[in-house]
Amino acid sequence: MNEEKPAVLVEARDGVQIITINRPEAKNALNGAVARGIAAAVDELDASEELWAGVLTGAGGTFSAGMDLKAFLTGDVPLVDDRGLGGITQRPPRKPLIGAVEGWAVAGGFELLLACDLVVAADDARFGVPEVKRALVAGAGAAMLLPQRIPQAVALEMLLTGDPITAARAAELGLVNRLTAPGGALEGAVALARTIAANGPLAVAITKQIARSASDWTTEEGWIRQGELMSPVFGSEDAQEGARAFAEKRPPVWKGR
């Protein structure tokens, strides 16, 4: 059944794209419309010459309760081609993406956060991967990626018990970058995104690519690959502008090239 309202809302604020999962009546459960909406939004983010960072959040006080199981039973799955769950778990955007969490981020909703680069959360938010409680596997990234983000024993405890953790515990583990008062996660994430967006966009994108890819490289290969990725940045117009702005004691004006 088609929904009357859009499953995903997208807006721009001062170089920051805000993507909102808009199914609060279903706790922002992920269906095909949500996945396609997120995928289209991050494509716009990466293609835009005016947007330098993105924020992903949920409407109505919940980030996401994960895959919509009712929709799943009808064949409506929240996958987009080879991009994974929600359109981003296997192929995140090139530009930085920040998760802004109010309420619950569990199952597939938690796996969307693992596709984000940074997370800002309200201090009463909750995080979890309860798939084993339903005889399922957290196959949209959590089983593979969570042990890379936090100590393996802690990741296994979350994955094998299915029990949630608090925002404070998530921050202690490094899953959450910043905590806010309830209701403040989006503004906190936008503020962080603006700080990132003020930097050289080519340098930010390539730095993200190197940091995300380095674990797949040997040390020798890493230096080679990093050099290949860095070289165009150092020869870019933005690199010249950064040095010139510093010398002239003025804010830089980036062109993204």
Rank of each mutant, 00 (worst) to 15 (best):
D76F: 15
G86P: 09
G84I: 02
L73K: 10
P147K: 01
P92K: 11
D81K: 14
G61P: 06
L136V: 09
L56T: 05
V120F: 03
A122Q: 02
E102K: 08
L51W: 00
G109L: 04
K95R: 11
G128W: 01
V137K: 04
S64T: 09
A143E: 09
T74C: 11
F63D: 08
D81A: 13
D117M: 11
L156R: 11
G103A: 05
F110G: 04
L113C: 12
A53I: 01
V129C: 10
L69R: 14
V154W: 06
D124A: 05
A140I: 09
A135Q: 12
K70G: 12
G99D: 02
R134H: 10
L118H: 08
R94L: 10
L112K: 08
R134G: 09
G128R: 00
L69Q: 14
V154K: 15
L79N: 15
A125P: 02
G139F: 08
I98Q: 00
V132K: 11
R149W: 01
M144W: 11
R149Y: 08
T62I: 10
Q152R: 14
V77W: 02
L146W: 03
P151R: 13
M67Q: 12
L73F: 10
V55E: 02
A107H: 13
A153H: 14
L146D: 00
E111M: 12
L156N: 07
V132G: 10
L146R: 01
P92F: 02
G128E: 00
V80R: 00
E111A: 03
G139E: 08
Q148G: 11
R134A: 10
D68K: 03
F63M: 13
D82Q: 13
D76Y: 15
V77K: 15
F110R: 04
V55M: 11
L146G: 02
G61W: 03
G58F: 07
Q90V: 07
E131K: 10
L145C: 06
A142D: 04
L85H: 10
G66D: 12
A135S: 13
P96K: 12
I88M: 06
L85P: 05
T57M: 06
V77E: 06
G108I: 04
D117K: 11
G141R: 02
L97P: 01
A53D: 00
L136Q: 11
D68G: 09
G87E: 04
K133L: 13
A65I: 08
I88V: 13
I150A: 04
A142W: 02
I88A: 07
G75L: 07
P130K: 10
V80P: 02
T62D: 13
F63K: 15
E102C: 09
D68T: 12
T62N: 12
L136C: 07
G141Q: 13
D81G: 11
G61K: 05
G60P: 13
L69N: 10
W104P: 06
A53E: 00
A65E: 09
I88E: 02
E111H: 13
A140K: 09
G109S: 12
I88H: 03
G87W: 05
T74G: 14
V80K: 01
G61I: 05
P130V: 10
G87P: 03
T89S: 09
L113P: 00
